[in-house]
C-alpha cells in the first residue's frame, strides 16, 4: 500500500484562495467532493469542524491537518493545499499556516491506510520535507515529495 493510493494531482491545490480558517476548510472539502470521496459535503464538513473544535489542528511549523474519521467518507483520501499568504488557523504558535493536509478517513479505515497517514505525519516533522513542499513548483513535484521514502 502506497500514499499514491490516497492522493493524486486532482487532490492537490497549490493556490488556495481562502483568507480564513473556516473558508479554507470549506475549500479543501470541496476538492474532496469534486473527486467523489465524500457522500455529503455538509456532513463531512461538520465532522471536520467538530474535530477542529476539540483543538486546532494547526500544529505550528506552518502546517495544519484538518481531518475526520467519518461515515460520510467513501474511500480514504488526502488533500494537499498550499496558501501563498498563509492563513490564521488558531495554531498553537500563533503563526500562520501555509501547508494544509486534509485527511478523510472512513469509519472503518484499514490499517494499511492508517499506516500511510502515520508515516506522513512523521515525515511532516522534518524541516527538509516541509521546505520541499513549500517550494515545489508543480503538483507533480509535490506528489514526488510525498511519495519519496525518507
Amino acid at each position: 500500500m502506497h500514499i499514491s493510493e490516497i492522493i493524486n494531482e486532482n487532490l492537490i491545490c497549490l493556490e488556495l484562495m481562502s483568507p480564513t480558517k473556516h473558508s479554507v476548510i470549506f475549500e479543501l472539502v470541496q476538492i474532496l467532493e469534486q473527486e467523489n470521496v465524500i457522500t455529503s459535503t455538509k456532513s463531512f464538513l461538520e465532522d471536520v469542524i467538530e474535530r477542529e473544535n476539540l483543538s486546532s489542528t494547526g500544529i505550528g511549523y506552518g502546517i495544519a491537518i484538518p481531518h475526520a474519521k467519518s461515515r460520510f467518507v467513501k474511500k480514504p483520501a488526502l488533500v494537499f493545499g498550499r496558501s501563498e499568504k498563509g492563513i490564521d488557523f488558531q495554531s498553537m504558535d500563533h503563526e500562520k499556516a501555509y501547508l494544509f493536509f486534509m485527511i478523510a478517513m472512513p469509519e472503518e479505515g484499514s490499517n494499511a491506510h492508517l499506516k500511510i497517514l502515520a508515516e506522513l505525519s512523521r515525515k511532516l516533522m522534518k524541516e527538509s520535507f516541509r521546505d520541499a513542499l513549500m517550494h515545489a513548483d508543480s503538483k507533480k513535484e509535490v506528489l514526488a515529495y510525498l511519495i519519496k521514502e525518507t
Binding site: 474535530r51 489542528t57 500544529i59 481531518h67 475526520a68 474519521k69 505525519s121 512523521r122
Partner: peptide, 17 residues
C-alpha cells in the same frame, strides 16, 4: 489523540528525534 491518525505519530517522531 482524538482521531488517532496524525498527532499521535507527529508527537512520537518529535520525541524520538
Amino acid at each position: 489523540c482524538p482521531t488517532g491518525i496524525a498527532h499521535t505519530y507527529m508527537a512520537e517522531e518529535k520525541l524520538i528525534e
